[in-house]
């Protein structure tokens, strides 16, 4: 570990472990129940990328904002969302965060500053920039973090968004979850630079490339970028290199990559690495780790039970929630 982890409070170190485990187990359960036909639509697993959401969110306050992606369960969980209401949303139930109107890809918890997962690649970037504008006008010290993948850095919204944030010196941290694949397209074929962090330089924004599977490195980098933004230092881009260990969506035949490549990357997955670090440095014992895993297992089982047992919305509820007052429209 390159950074001075000794300065990180123990409770934060433990919180990060538990959060990563929670994200992993949530997505494993979602995958399992999707394949059993219980969850409609599509889901995109964050498995293998847990260190990024966790390391960043460990530095955020509840009143800070984030924008998330189609692969957004990890961001919600790390920002403190309730896994029961999350799972219920995946199941399309009335008790879900969006009352069954959004599903996995549009899950949001506005009260915790999660300004939505997003079904559109780079769709969250302009939203994050707008939240940054609001913060600036209110002269508050909140920050905004926008998460997106390597594919998003090829979209106009990324370039417009970085430029806009730089022009107005907005407190927005752009986090690229560089997971090597945009759906079926390998980054090495679609992105002509090795590190997209260099793209930030074109907008006068500092950009840094880090190991996104090392939660401590993510934590330290995010802490610096977030503190800087809180003090008026402006936008920052963090490129966190990681690997999408599962398909683009659950059920993806994955014809575009070699299984051996995936197996190689499983060796670098973030939770095992962090667990080894925690044990080696005596921060957690084997028993602690078992206890955490068991506790999270129960929490996820409970979430699945809650989702299964919750009622579906009434069909007519489809005609609510478009406008603040939905009466009188020709729905």
């Amino acid at each position: 570990m390159r950074f001075g982890w000794e300065d990180i409070p123990k409770e934060t170190l433990v919180w990060m472990y538990e959060t990563m485990v929670k994200i992993r187990k949530f997505d494993l359960a979602a995958e399992q129940h999707f394949l059993r036909g219980e969850i409609p639509g599509f889901i995109h697993a964050y498995i293998g990328e847990e260190a990024i959401a966790t390391g960043v969110m460990a530095n955020l306050r509840e009143d800070d904002y984030i924008t998330s992606t189609h692969r957004g369960h990890g961001h919600m969980i790390a920002k403190g969302a309730d896994v029961k209401r999350m799972m219920a949303e995946l199941y399309g139930k009335k008790t879900g965060y969006c009352r069954g109107k959004g599903g996995s890809m549009h899950i949001a918890d506005i009260s915790r500053g999660v300004l939505g997962a997003n079904g559109e690649v780079a769709g969250g970037i302009p939203i994050a920039v707008g939240a940054g504008l609001a913060v600036k006008f209110r002269k508050s010290d909140q920050v905004v973090v926008s998460f997106f993948g390597d594919g998003a850095t090829n979209r106009g919204a990324f370039h417009e968004g970085l430029n806009f944030a730089a022009v107005y010196n907005l407190p927005v941290i752009f986090v690229v979850e560089f997971n090597e694949y945009a759906s079926t397209a390998p980054a090495r074929e679609m992105i002509p630079v090795k590190n997209v962090a260099v793209r930030a330089a074109g907008y006068g924004i500092p950009g840094i490339t880090i190991d996104g599977n090392n939660v401590l490195e993510v934590y330290e980098t995010a802490r610096m970028a977030i503190e800087r933004a809180r003090c008026g230092g402006g936008p920052f881009l963090i490129e966190a290199k990681t690997y999408r260990l599962k398909g683009h969506f659950v059920g993806d035949p994955e014809l575009y990559r070699d299984k051996r490549e995936v197996q190689e990357f499983w060796k670098k997955e973030p939770i095992g690495r962090y667990e080894a670090f925690l044990l080696k440095n005596g921060i957690l014992t084997k028993e602690d780790i078992e206890e955490i895993n068991e506790r999270v297992d129960k929490m996820i089982e409970e979430a699945v039970r809650f989702a299964r047992e919750s009622p579906y919305p009434e069909p007519e509820d489809a005609l609510r929630d478009l406008f603040v007052d939905d009466t009188g429209y020709d729905y």
Partner: peptide, 17 residues
């Protein structure tokens, strides 16, 4: 930068403006 002009309006509104 029209996409970010319109999209930022959404973010700003969600954040209270």
């Amino acid at each position: 930068s029209e996409e970010v002009i319109y999209g930022s309006a959404l973010g700003a509104a969600m954040a209270g403006m």
